[in-house]
């Protein structure tokens, strides 16, 4: 018996596959060197040589977009992995230990919600100067409380199951139970959350790079391309279109994939569509 896959899952998977494929391809091949300037060939119209034309420094737009996809994926991956791991570890520990410790961790998580990624990035930039690694740290930071909450909520349910009671009766310690029984059983909601946070991280990276708090020149980034395009908005408005479309494609892809995964793994949580 086959169940019909939700359309958001399928569309999301296709978009994500597209973006990831382009990012991977850019590692080995781009039409041109994305950083290669050619002042004489600036603002070239789209054509066989430059599919989407060139920018104000004569750099190939398609190559830049491809390299930026790689950058965007890398930032989102590292940030979500870093923040997610810490958050999951905190959430698991809170759930396993309980009591005052759990309460304290969750209050700290609440506190984390008072700092949007942008404010955190601003603080880091003010102290250390703007850089891509600071942007990654800031995005990772906001993921910690999010994952801590999801993990704890899911883990607390698992702790009430009978097989956990059986494991305890068998003399397993709290951390062994967390690792062997709780974590595998809460993998689904965590993966769903990670997919959705991946989309959020792509948006955040773009915004931070746009504001100059993320990728610094000449590192390729959709956000930075947009901030350069803004100064040329009268001269070459087309340059402001492509990077935005890339961001929307990537964010939409991961967002739909996350929604779709949630619908499949936990029908109770799926929103009325």
């Amino acid at each position: 018996m086959t169940r019909k896959l939700p359309s958001n899952l399928l569309i999301g998977a296709v978009l994500v596959a597209l973006v990831v494929a382009v990012a991977l391809l850019s590692l080995v091949w781009t039409p041109h060197d994305f950083a290669q300037m050619n002042i004489r060939g600036k603002f070239a119209a789209p054509g066989a040589e430059h599919w989407l034309g060139t920018d104000q420094l004569g750099r190939d737009v398609v190559s830049q977009l491809m390299a930026a996809a790689r950058n965007s994926m890398a930032v989102a991956f590292i940030a979500v992995l870093l923040g997610g791991s810490i958050g999951v570890a905190l959430g698991l520990t809170a759930s396993a230990v309980g009591g005052v410790f759990e309460e304290g961790i969750m209050r700290l998580a609440d506190l984390g919600f008072a700092f949007p990624a942008l404010l955190f990035a601003i603080m880091l930039a003010a102290v250390f100067g703007p850089s891509l690694s600071n942007a990654v740290l800031a995005i990772a930071f906001i993921n910690i409380p999010i994952f801590a909450r999801v993990t704890r909520a899911s883990a607390n349910q698992i702790w009430m199951r009978e097989y956990v009671a059986a494991a305890r009766a068998a003399g397993l310690g709290r951390f062994a139970i967390s690792r062997d029984h709780v974590l595998p059983n809460i993998a689904a909601p965590i993966i769903v959350q990670a997919t959705i946070e991946f989309a959020v991280a792509i948006l955040a990276e773009a915004a931070l790079s746009y504001l100059g708090l993320g990728a610094q020149p000449p590192a390729p980034s959709w956000g930075r391309m947009l901030s350069e395009a803004q100064t040329l908005i009268y001269l070459a408005p087309q340059l402001a279109i492509y990077p935005g479309l890339c961001i929307v494609t990537a964010v939409l892809g991961f967002g739909l994939l996350g929604d779709g995964l949630r619908d499949v793994t936990d029908p109770r949580l799926s929103r009325e569509r």
């Binding site: 948006l203 956000g223 803004q230 908005i233 964010v251 939409l252 967002g255």
Partner: peptide, 26 residues
């Protein structure tokens, strides 16, 4: 509405701003 909002959620506000500027200002 659902389709538009799905797209809207994925649009960065600063890019939307630039599109608005291109259309309504430029």
């Amino acid at each position: 509405v659902m389709f538009l909002s799905q797209i809207g959620i994925a649009i960065p506000a600063f890019w939307l701003s630039m599109l608005l500027v291109i259309l309504f200002a430029v």
